[in-house]
Simulated scan of single mutants.
Amino acid sequence: MGLQEKNYFLASGESLLCDQQERFLFSEVELEPLDVEISFDLPEVSNKSYRIAVLNNKGKHLSLKALDLRSALSQTDNEDEFSILSAAAQVVTWHASFKYCPRCATELIMDEADLAKVCPSCGHHQYPRLSPCIIVLVRKDDKCLLAHSSKFKSGRYSTLAGFIEAGESAEHAVEREVMEEVGIMVKNIEYVCSQSWPFPHSFMLGFMADYSGGDITPDGEEIISADWFGIDELPTIPPQFTISRQLIDRFIEER
């Protein structure tokens, strides 16, 4: 497939760009008057090819602005669009964050074959960063555990989540995070699905688990409040594009 047939994302710094109509995919022709620092391929999605062009400035011929990524993701129920938006955002963050070799401080250059940067001095390869995380919905009879985080808007509740630490399994991370955040034990941990989450480069592994013991005790730092909710008494929950909502919807379907 030729370059002229590919759709382009535009970026500046760590931000994806859009026009005044919130359009975030551009043609190769629209790139011609812009000052492009570098461009590279993104992973294919459903046999469609995409590229991302990082600009040295925001251009003189297009009225561009930073894309509100959360808003853009929340407005799509298309899995392919979510996937490519997430990929573009994570690659932009990686490109802006890794300019120099972490081993010898030489300026990195793009690898000719892979989506990677290589050090021309020591040969170190730097790939886009992914941070594995778990996210889990805990069940107790006909209710599920939802929590309000200090990072959430007022009234918003969601599932529990956290990063996987070096050397531990995803299942152990589920047990540890639930205990650390709300003080309860879980059992029957079951993997459900995964999702790339570009804030800034998380890879979410989604689980369901059953309550095993203990009393809910929010840690008071990450989790402000938490409780058991039946399907007829759910608080404000995350939008449908999120993996947390997928887990909640699965619980609702089971009931």
Rank of each mutant, 00 (worst) to 15 (best):
S225P: 12
L73V: 01
G167F: 05
K153S: 12
N56D: 09
E79V: 06
G206E: 03
H172F: 11
F229A: 00
T242A: 00
P239I: 05
S12P: 12
P198T: 06
P200C: 07
C122R: 07
L10A: 07
E181A: 06
A161M: 08
V174D: 01
S97W: 07
P200D: 07
I248P: 00
L34H: 04
K48D: 10
P235A: 03
A53Q: 10
S212K: 10
F152M: 06
A89P: 01
S27F: 12
S196D: 09
E222K: 15
E107K: 06
S15K: 11
T93Y: 11
A170R: 09
E233K: 07
Y157P: 00
Y127V: 13
A147L: 06
L25I: 10
S15A: 14
Q246R: 10
A116V: 06
C119A: 04
P198S: 08
H201N: 13
L108P: 00
D68R: 04
E221P: 13
A113M: 13
V29S: 14
E5S: 15
E81H: 04
S169N: 03
M1T: 15
R255A: 15
A209Q: 00
Q90E: 08
E222S: 13
V178E: 05
R255I: 15
F203I: 11
L205H: 12
N57S: 14
F163S: 14
